[in-house]
Design a protein around this nucleic acid. Structure first.
Lengths: 233, 233
DNA sequence: ACAAAAGTGTTCGTGCTACACCCATGG
DNA sequence: CCATGGGTGTAGCACGAACACTTTTGT
């Protein structure tokens, strides 16, 4: 155990809201690729790989991700925690920096043959600790949906509130009310009305107004739950 | 630049609420040591050092910290972000995992001669990017004070609300109302009354009731600011 | 006209702040 | 008995959840 090598790797949990079964409606999905060789042949892994000498973590994440998906479709990428257990993988010691990546519902990038989207609620057998990493990333995403504008990276450029409601419901894992969603996001100035409407669907119904996100980068919108600075009641 | 070595280091921002000038009252302080040799001789650095082969990050943080302060006084230690810019320090590439450590106001550990507490509001010249690291850790601490019980690691075992108020005010950087502080923390079941009181001070006054924190480890107390799961209004 | 989908309004509860007022002690 | 500090009560506001009601479209 003495002259063991330590390498630093990056693992990216890329999420997108996708429809798998028409009955169930859209679900949160994660991008995985299937290992063709040992170790853990056949199991599903997160995109990622070893950090190069002269790149920082997010540069590396983008480079590794490019092998599996067109990175231009990744609307948001941020570093989460680190998995540093010396025995988390066999062989050389690998310290993993875990990233969260988000792809808007409107894009459908072409994938390599070994790569596919999987619903996070029904993960296949995953490699090493990657299942834990995915669940952790999902937990962080759910939390951030409640106090940031992070949904901008899951939504199309313009959208009806009913679409946004479906996106939130899929990502959170429970139903949300489109009315209240609209009001919460409007109050925080996360959402803007475009002033335009979309044609109504085949079953009729009032044509929905179109909205867009005010910002295209992460913003904390509810900084202090309690103990605010004086005068900011 | 090709055969450059990459090492992984740990940096710990240890905070404590301390009184420097009687006029100003208690302030948030950070533990720093002064470099005796190049590079950056004379500047002040965070405790830390290179990760060993068979330890995980928090084990390493504890080990590095032991060189500067009695680790038994560190009531809370957690990993924050990572600083991975290839050129953040000269020489070998160093990836830094940034930790937050907290020491209760009631302990006053003995320190090596090169080590001292500095008010975060008046930092001396710091080494490399350590000033940025300190400010980042402070920002995280402030945020966590508003939605977790993290103050347990800054407070004594038992305390009057006025003491806790001073601790929060010092850590947050602005005044808080002891009455409301008590109510917010009580509602969240963060605080418990001991049922006992402390003798009143030299100027008289009603003797304060003593409280303690219900938990001695980090707990999130305000998970969803908005978009709660249905039925949890 | 009617169904379907979107949008508006209203009620209710809760959490937080601010501040006035009451209580217990030492000198 | 009064200054000092601690504790309690209360009013007001802002936010969010739930849900009924109205509006706008297609058939």
């Amino acid at each position: 155990m003495t002259h063991r090598i330590t390498v630093h790797e990056v693992l990216i949990a890329v999420f997108q809201v996708r429809t798998f079964t028409a009955a169930q409606g859209p679900e949160l999905a994660v991008l995985l690729w299937q290992r063709a060789r040992e170790p853990e042949e056949g199991s599903w892994s997160l995109p990622g790989g070893v950090l190069a000498t002269d790149e920082d973590l997010s540069t590396s994440a983008r480079r590794q991700l490019a092998e599996k998906v067109d990175v231009r479709t990744v609307a948001h990428l941020e570093q989460l925690s680190i998995f540093s257990d010396p025995d988390r993988v066999p062989g050389d010691r690998r310290i993993a920096s875990n990233f969260l990546g988000l792809v808007p519902i409107s894009s459908d990038p072409t994938l390599p043959v070994d790569t596919a989207w999987h619903p996070v609620a029904r993960l296949p057998a995953t490699s090493f600790d990657h299942g834990t990493v995915v669940r952790h990333a999902r937990t962080r995403l759910v939390a951030k949906l409640s106090y940031t504008n992070i949904a901008f990276a899951l939504a199309p450029v313009e959208f009806a509130m009913s679409t946004l409601r479906e996106i939130y419901a899929a990502a959170l894992g429970y139903q949300v009310d489109a009315t209240n969603l609209q009001r919460v996001l409007a109050r925080r100035k996360v959402l803007e009305a475009t002033g335009r409407t979309s044609p109504s669907g085949k079953a009729g119904g009032r044509p929905p107004a179109l909205y867009r996100f005010a910002d295209a980068s992460l913003r904390v919108t509810d900084e202090f739950a309690a103990l605010r600075p004086p005068g900011q009641a």
